[in-house]
């Protein structure tokens, strides 16, 4: 997916296990992040619910969210792509 000739680094964030993907902390609240947002390292990007346990999905690096590959409230498999972050 990396664009040739670009000095930016694209970092993929993948599901650590299967689970339901949530972009919002609660149904009546705004999403954690949108495409174009700049995120800090360890900032929460989404929640993954597996067998009633919620895991916070955190940004592995600082950078800009360039892609949100998973849809809200949809089940993901282990290692499915969730986000792409471009580091400065």
């Amino acid at each position: 997916m990396s664009s040739p000739g670009s000095s930016d680094k694209r970092v993929e964030v993948r599901a650590p296990m299967s689970g339901v993907f949530y972009r919002r902390p609660a149904p009546d609240q705004p999403p954690y992040v949108e495409v174009g947002d700049f995120v800090k390292k360890r900032q929460v990007l989404a929640l993954l619910e597996t067998m009633k346990v919620f895991q916070k999905i955190r940004a592995p690096v600082e950078g800009t969210v360039v892609e949100i590959a998973a849809e809200n409230e949809v089940p993901l498999k282990d290692n499915d792509l969730m986000f792409v972050i471009e580091t400065p």
């Binding site: 296990m17 299967s18 689970g19 597996t50 067998m51 346990v53 895991q55």
Partner: peptide, 14 residues
């Protein structure tokens, strides 16, 4: 429970 006691009791589906 289908949980991993060595990894903070994370669930273990499959």
């Amino acid at each position: 429970n289908a949980e991993d006691p060595d990894r903070n009791f994370l669930p273990s589906p499959g």
